[in-house]
Design a protein around this nucleic acid. Structure first.
Lengths: 336, 336
DNA sequence: CTGTTAGCGCCTTCAT
DNA sequence: ATGAAGGCGCTAACAG
């Protein structure tokens, strides 16, 4: 279809020459930020630009305008399914709003986080979405000082604008579900203590248990990482406990839950019969496990939308998207 | 530590003024592409630039130089663990070589793939890594015509430079492993037929079976998607078959294998005893499943390194990184 | 609405 | 080794 050989890259000058108007006119006609003119020349210029295969040079354009139509996203790692889902949601949302999302990964290392942030800022992003916040992190404060537009996603430092899931409610739903099934011996495995999500999910679970008049001794609360391995270790320590073994476990993350399930299998227990397990986030895999996993579904799209809203917004707001409990076979009433 | 308030962004001009030299000198001193000068002024300028918190404006710089130090990566989706692993490997490698990797996702839709490619090219990437190639895809041809530096990763169209895993060898290892365990009734579930990886893995499996003098009837070969769900469906159809049921299944992807395992559980079969299952890629989850999954480990880092090598290279080469079989509990000798 | 003019910040000849 | 000058492609004032 396209016959033009793009050996030479088409610039505004070429389009101007071909249309017999000035460069500025072309620039204005092709400006996508204003409602497009419907005048005859405008139409013609647009057609010619299209025929020639003109594409705006983002460097030149970005140099001149302030903004770049790019937002930077920082996540610990994309191999964490939760982060991949979050980023894809942000990417979709950004695209729908006409911008482009670039991602950088930084593991769990604050120094690396700084470095990655600088890298993104160097690329003149219009704003930053951080899915890395620790409660003890000073990066958000630094960004606030520097006046860099930013928003925290999934986790908060308690100060900067944040687009969160309602982790307290999610934790409540999960634990309430177990209580409703008649469980009394319940344990909670929560994520790293430096994440707001870990604390809030535990707080929600505590509320549900308190309502049911159920004790949650400290020995039944384990704070650990967010990886499968952590769940495996925690699960083993909970399930090997013989008589004191809990009949139900709320893992504050599907990875943890998967680790727990593996530990249960290894201990000869059947999940959904001998022990009930609830996860969190409802990653697609949850539904496809040998024993489908009950989980709390996080509204990633809603969080992404809020995040981009807040990026534009004026000052420190916090949104909390309500999650949904998805009951599956991994949880069952006590005593079958 | 940094005391300067970056209200005003520091440019070369500022550094020049503060050091009492010309802009061009500063520009030269700070040019990271050439071996850094060790002269007195050079050292001083570098120090001042650092103190002032100077950061090169990539737009201005990119506008002037041709290159941007950015490579674009195109993947179908990051929620596919394989793609997340591939991208992270590319990101790491790129960073180690001083560039930055940006990713775009495009699903399985060729039209969307074009759009995403244009988006990346608009951002003046120095080159493109595509992990999306279909055998019937015309995008690589288009890029070749246009002279856009690019390399295909994981999958090839058979023409453009490609950094692949040795899928034929991997398929061979997987099937050979099953043959060695004494299995005779073996089925293969392979990925979409438009991917070179699906075809090559099947070809390797065929070779191993042929060596063992084992038949692979067409009914025992299923070509499907690369998702868990596809594996579940395929697994069900293979395992429900009563007497004709295979004793071992090679799934050309861990997702497929997980789906098969779920189907096996649902059919009341114990994986590793009643049926052996081999996956492919050895995603971290594979080792953590209730029954740890035997899989063929893909050398993502090696593929990433080759990909970036080929991006710089002259013309159409193909590299194939040798994978490794990782035996686990999901495969066992026939008859226990 | 259109064209002219003047840079955005940086890099790179070309002279010194 | 250094400085002066021009321009990458685009956009934002400023006239007309």
């Amino acid at each position: 279809m396209d016959e033009q050989q793009e050996r030479h890259i088409v610039t505004l000058k070429d389009v101007a020459a071909a249309s017999g108007v000035s460069i500025s006119t072309v620039s204005r006609v092709l400006d996508d930020r204003t409602p497009p003119s419907r005048s005859a020349t405008a139409e013609r210029v647009r057609r010619i630009a299209d025929d020639l295969g003109y594409r705006r040079n983002m460097f030149a354009s970005g140099l001149r305008r302030g903004a770049t139509g790019t937002i930077g996203v920082l996540v610990p790692r994309l191999t964490d399914h939760v982060m991949a889902l979050m980023f894809e949601a942000i990417e979709r949302t950004a695209r729908a709003r006409g911008s482009f999302a670039v991602v950088a990964t930084c593991g769990d290392d604050p120094a690396e986080e700084r470095r990655a942030t600088e890298t993104l800022l160097d690329r003149n992003v219009d704003g930053l979405v951080l899915a890395t916040a620790r409660l003890d992190d000073t990066l958000p404060a630094l960004l606030r000082e520097r006046g860099v537009p930013h928003v925290l996603a999934l986790r908060t430092d308690g100060v900067s604008p944040s687009a969160l899931g309602d982790d307290e409610a999610g934790g409540y739903f999960a634990a309430r579900h177990l209580v409703d099934l008649g469980h009394q011996e319940i344990a909670v495995i929560t994520g790293p203590w430096f994440t707001s999500s870990a604390r809030d999910r535990l707080a929600g679970a505590r509320r549900a248990l308190a309502e049911g008049g159920i004790e949650l001794p400290d020995a039944r609360v384990i704070s650990t990482g967010y990886g499968i391995e952590s769940g495996h270790v925690a699960g083993r320590s909970l399930l090997d406990g013989g008589a004191t073994r809990p009949t139900a476990i709320f893992a504050a993350n599907d990875n943890l839950a998967i680790g727990v399930v593996a530990a249960a299998s290894a201990a000869g227990l059947t999940v959904g019969r001998d022990v009930s397990v609830v996860g969190y986030n409802d990653i697609p895999l949850a539904a496809m496990l040998p024993v489908p996993l009950t989980s709390v579904r996080t509204a990633f799209d809603q969080i992404a939308a809020s995040a981009l809203d807040l990026l534009g917004g004026t000052d420190g707001a916090v949104t909390r998207a309500l999650p949904t409990l998805i009951p599956r076979a991994s949880t069952a009433a006590l005593g079958r």
